[in-house]
Amino acid sequence: MKDMQPHTPAHAPDGPLLRVEGLSKHYGARIGCADVSFDLWPGEVLGIVGESGSGKSTLLSCLAGHLTPDAGQVIFETRGGPRDTVQMAEPERRLLGRTDWAFVHQNPRDGLRMGVSAGGNVGERLMAVGARNYGAIRETATDWLGRVEIDAARIDDRPRQFSGGMQQRLQIARNLVTGPRLVFMDEPTGGLDVSVQARLLDLLRGLVRDMGLAVIIVTHDLAVARLLAHRLMVMKDGRVIEHGLTDQVLDDPQAAYTQLLVSSVLQV
């Protein structure tokens, strides 16, 4: 079980963890996302921002393998070397989805088994990769509940009995328990009260830093982006219209659309 513990921040990387090249997805005649390319380095947090309908969720689904893109490559630095995950067979991609990758949904109901206890939810990924010692699984689950600030006494309770914020923290624990290297997050703080959001963001920031996670986070909330992301991509109509360091993009936006986006938020 020891190797399931979080990694220390990644050692000096030789290259990007993920290389995305020319990724496109169409829905009939409509563009989902078009010609998206970027690199993501180990330990780096990339924010994808834009209004709803801008293509950011389509892009995230294509990256995570939930949707098959029409064109492009998503090359991930697997433990066995770089691989285009678009071309991977479904079993391989699913294995990746339970080991090196994780996906945090906006709605915890989509990412949790609501009829299974908190411990079972956290333990599922461990069991899916072969953990067969009940005591060790439970110990790891207890440890992870602690890290996401859920009382260990709640380990046998079902997520239905949890508040929205707790459910989201449980979803995060369930995802991070196998020590993934790349985490996809789809509006992880959406739908939560502001005070609950703040606590969750704080927790996420700590975990990302301590585990050296690379993260791709989709959000329409620029405050969330500023707090978590090192770099930002701004999307409009399925295309990336601006890309740069977070502070740069937010403090000195170049594209007219980004300026509008930033100003509309700052006035709130």
Binding site: R113, V116, S117, G119, G120, G123, E124, M127, A128, R132, Y134, I137, R138, I155, D156
Partner: peptide
């Protein structure tokens, strides 16, 4: 195995 885990937990 989640099912078996839940059995033992309960």
């Amino acid at each position: 195995h989640v099912k078996l885990y839940e059995d033992i937990a309960r």
